[in-house]
Design a binder for these strands. Sequence first.
DNA 1: TAATTGACTATATGAATCAATTATTCAATT
DNA 2: AATTGAATAATTGATTCATATAGTCAATTA
Lengths: 199, 199
Amino acid sequence: MKKDHKQNDIFHAALKLFARFGYQKTTMEDVAAETGMSKGNIYFYVSGKRDLYEKTVSSALQQWRETVAEAVAREGDVVEKFSVMARLSFEYLVDHDDLRSILIKDPGIFTLTPREDRFSEINLGAMQLVKNILSQGIAEGRFHPVDVDHTAELFFSIYIMFLIKRYVKSEGVSAARMYDEGMKIILRGICTNPQEPSA
Amino acid sequence: MKKDHKQNDIFHAALKLFARFGYQKTTMEDVAAETGMSKGNIYFYVSGKRDLYEKTVSSALQQWRETVAEAVAREGDVVEKFSVMARLSFEYLVDHDDLRSILIKDPGIFTLTPREDRFSEINLGAMQLVKNILSQGIAEGRFHPVDVDHTAELFFSIYIMFLIKRYVKSEGVSAARMYDEGMKIILRGICTNPQEPSA
DNA sequence: TAATTGACTATATGAATCAATTATTCAATT
DNA sequence: AATTGAATAATTGATTCATATAGTCAATTA
């Protein structure tokens, strides 16, 4: 699709500009200049500035989700899946500067309330991954039988909290230590057996 | 002290007014009228409107902390202490309408970052309680040996997250379920032994 | 003399206006 | 179907000004 490709060019340019200048200071002319199109033509692909912003962020979040899902799919062991999902979700922003910068400028993208989540579709997808891993772990007898829905929501909320602490408030070091402690406690809390037999 | 008592009257009146109208819409004259003093006299007790607000909120938060600490002190078993602390901290706002209403209007009171915490003195006190319980539990061999500082910070952050979800975003029911699941997982994650012997 | 008053001043706020910038539309063109 | 650029609509930011409110203080009271 030629149209899809052009659209992606626009999102890529917009991501860069929104990251540098923020929503307000980025003009449609900036975006047009960056893509080499005329201003009016942008409106052939998106319905307005707000729409451009949301589609741009959505596509970046989608990539994040896909990257994590692919890495998880590569793991065999369900406990490993859980660990990889958590670590990669948490580390992803380290080397995705533009998206990180946008999230810092617009912390409302990370919300603790599904109801006011502008990107709920993507986040529901992410939460589905958590649910799948939990269900699999329980089915295999590796995890204690927990309420999958509420536990997934809990983990997702804790995850959002960590993102806010680490990236939005840039408490990098402290957040990383907390993450380590938290991961140990949660793994002990959900896994049925000690990892090593009889040690 | 007569002065202390008068000051408390002011805080009590201010709490009520700030709860009803918010910071902006509450005038120093309102507070004066509510306490029966003249406006000028309020300045004998506090140095300005901002100061009045902060002292008012501080004193209410302090009461919260004390209520929890007293209930914890009444428990013998360290695991019970932990449970009581968590539950009471979480439930306190249910029957403290004015404070709850203020926290909803000014969610910045709950912050995930110690650095920008306007009430850090009080929150550090609250976190000290968590640390004490953790240390005691570890010393008694009831809890796994965790990094007390970072684990306390982690639990405190999760607690703040729950407060935001439950009261600020009023996701009461869902937050309560998440709380139950979370409590089970965390207790399994930190406790060394099953509660019941051989059952 | 600590506590209180009320009249006074300084400051902050919100409404109204207006120019300039920027978003959005659309008839014409490729 | 995709693109342009000129025309228009909407938004923003700066400025002004009147009003409301925060904050001060010399005088008074208990």
